[in-house]
């Protein structure tokens, strides 16, 4: 069965790329939908309530930044962080174009992005990555340090700075507008 489908349309070939933020335009432009990436360095975590507060001015240097839509469970003693998987990126769509405009290069989450976000990604040379939702315990092992950067009052929704090591993600939408949700579905639709 797999062979038959592969003949119909070749599945996208996976390759693994290392990303160290802040990201250059060149590094982002080289990413293709379907690429697997490993992120090392500082990334930022924020979700609904924080986006509503900070709007166009995030409480971190946006130039070349990676923004992860996530809010972890509390850390157990001896752990850097609790479980930290992605939340649905679609809910952050209304805020994303403004953030890409001020320099954010990569957003990470789960789920689809709107046409407006895809258009803004093309315009500002940005990419959208996915990590498996519900793989939160495993992902926590790639976080070495977590610091509350802003809005501690929001509890689990506070903005965090995360120091990550080989944090694994898949490029879902690249800066050229290629969308793995659409491509992948076409390949396996029966």
């Amino acid at each position: 069965m797999a062979k038959k489908i592969a003949k119909k349309k070749k599945p996208l070939k996976a390759r693994t790329i290392k990303l160290v933020p802040p990201l250059s335009d060149k590094a982002v432009a080289a990413l293709k939908a379907g690429d697997r990436v490993l992120i090392c360095g500082k990334i930022y975590a924020a979700r609904d309530s924080a986006h509503k507060i900070f709007g166009k001015q995030p409480p971190f240097e946006p130039e070349g930044a990676i923004l992860y839509y996530a809010s972890p469970t509390p850390a157990r003693k001896g752990f850097a962080i609790g479980s930290i998987g992605p939340t649905t990126a679609t809910r952050m769509d209304p805020f994303t174009p403004d953030l890409l405009k001020v320099g954010v290069k990569i957003t990470i989450g789960k789920g689809r992005r709107s046409d407006a976000v895809k258009k803004a990604m093309k315009k500002h040379n940005a990419a959208y990555l996915v990590v498996p939702g519900g793989a939160a315990a495993a992902l926590s092992k790639h976080v070495r340090r977590s610091t509350v950067l802003a809005y501690p009052d929001l509890g689990p929704e506070a903005v965090l700075e995360l120091d990550v090591m080989n944090f694994p993600a898949i490029v879902a939408i690249d800066s050229k507008g290629n969308d793995l949700f659409e491509e992948g579905r076409k390949t396996y639709e029966k």
Binding site: R76, F79, G82, S83, P132, G133, G134, A135, A136
Partner: peptide, 23 residues
């Protein structure tokens, strides 16, 4: 790859008494 990560995640969550999902 994703299914493997999910199965592995369940093992890690059980071993370290961590939440399977942050939500």
């Amino acid at each position: 790859e994703i299914l493997r990560q999910l199965i592995n995640n369940a093992k890690i969550a059980w071993r370290d008494k961590l939440a399977i999902c942050q939500d």
